[in-house]
Nucleic acid binder design. Sequence first.
DNA 1: GCCGTTTTCGGCCCGACTGTTTTCAGTCG
Length: 576
Amino acid sequence: MPDPSNAQIAAAFDELGDLYELDGAIVHRVVAYRNAAKAVREAPVSIAALTREGKVTQLPGIGKTLEEKISALLETGTIPAAEKLRAKFPPGLVDMTRLPGVGPKRVRKLFDQLGIASLDALREAAEQQQLRDVKGFGPKFEETVLAAFAAGVAEKAAPRTLLHRATDMAAAIVDALQAHPSAGTVAVAGGVRRLTESVKDLDVIATSDDPAGLAGALGELDLVESCSVAGEAGARARTHTGMPIDLRVVAPDQLGNLLQHFTGSKAHNVRLREMAVRKGLHVSEYGVLDDATGTTHRCATEEEVYALLGLPWIAPELREDRGELDAGFIHPELVTQEDLRGDLHCHTIASDGRATIEGMAHAAQARGLEYLCITDHSATHGFGNDVPADELLRQVERVREVDASMDGFTLLIGTETNILPDGRPDYDDDVLAQLDWVVGSVHTQFQMGEAEMTKRIVAALEHPMIDCLGHPTGRLIERREGYTFDLDAVLDAARRTGSMLEINGNPNRRDLRETHARAAAQAGIPIVINSDAHGPETLDVTRWGVATARRAWLTKDDVVNTLPWRDFAPLRKRAR
DNA sequence: GCCGTTTTCGGCCCGACTGTTTTCAGTCG
């Protein structure tokens, strides 16, 4: 029996949280399970391995009891408490809590008194007006339930929108509201501001001398389908794509409080407020209440909010309770897109790209880059045109010619070679040796087991001609988990062999993901942020790679392609 | 269930909204 992955352990804790909640446990116990799930999910090391070493309680949020539960999961494949609770509460109960306005307490009551144990049974009971017979429930509740079914909420979890799309939408909304005559400051908060991988809604905050007018203006926007509760304090709306928008309007002297509150994350805010309480302060979106004086400090800026708590301003990307509120925290100087001088992963019409070598090179130069490496897909098929070895060698000549024709720009030739199932690249070494740079990527046989995949990637990293591992996990955000491998072993191999790891900027990938990138940088492994562009316009996607890097606490020093090529070149494995 | 310039027990963020309520519990963000 293979060890459960961190994701599986986290899921088990989330399930236990749900089950204990149905069982009527106090909220703090439930929260403890959910916090533990978050800690496990974000851990860059194997929780199973950590547990075997007896060190898992070092992870904040994991105590003696949860350690025992992980041990049981490792040894028997299951957790006794979960077995017991599953026998008590059918799985349909947790499904029911997905409906808005339907939480664990109400589900439990309906289960106990009417035996309702599934979404279907709930719908039927609502249709037959049976729910109102239970004390605490009425006709409105039946309506809410039926409306949720009618809206299709029951079928699937609320969709999440990838950051690049959410950012475009948010920008359009901010621009439109900013144009309103009453608008003062209009700003994006929430996950879009923190640059998370995906978001479930848009949070927009504003000041205005006509709050109701501004809130009304939101409902008039083309991309808004419907708008409800528009009033003095703001509005709730929904886009045609189904994304909820939350607009909050506040006086200018509270803008800092509101921005801090609505930027989140929830975990950051909870931790921040707990720290505040210990200092006799109470933080909310309206101000900071001081117990000692009974006065509420209103803050026009976030800096003032943090300063009242004795903290430096913290970049939104770091606000995840991943150490940014710990004693001794020193704010890192986060890498920016302007820091990037080169891009070492892009495609042309030679494989599946849309532009020529010249097209890509001039586009990169126009964007202010100093160097670009052409890395078309390799000899094994699957991505547009194959590039057999002789074709790649002709591509070397073409790139050298274009490079010679360019002023103040270095054009490089490489490849994105497929890492074959046994870990070898799909060109011969003497071909790879004629290139400036080689990205190795896994594009096939994702299904192989963890041990085999680890062996495959480690073998690739040990290859003297593979300089960098491309999109290391193969995940697609919200769509595909990516293949599983032992991260510790891969990081160890990268460090040992002098290989670099990529943060792929494609907004669907952002791979390495932030927790892995942070672990890699801490291990001293050089990180490269690449676009993987297939056309001139997608060269800009490095901004999403930078977003991931910033969320991983990376500085300019952690990212190698912030260096000019003359300083980058000697760091390549092939040059060492 | 976790955690400790509250350290082995007694706390554990803050506020809004909703519906069913005679004063509040449940849900949500």
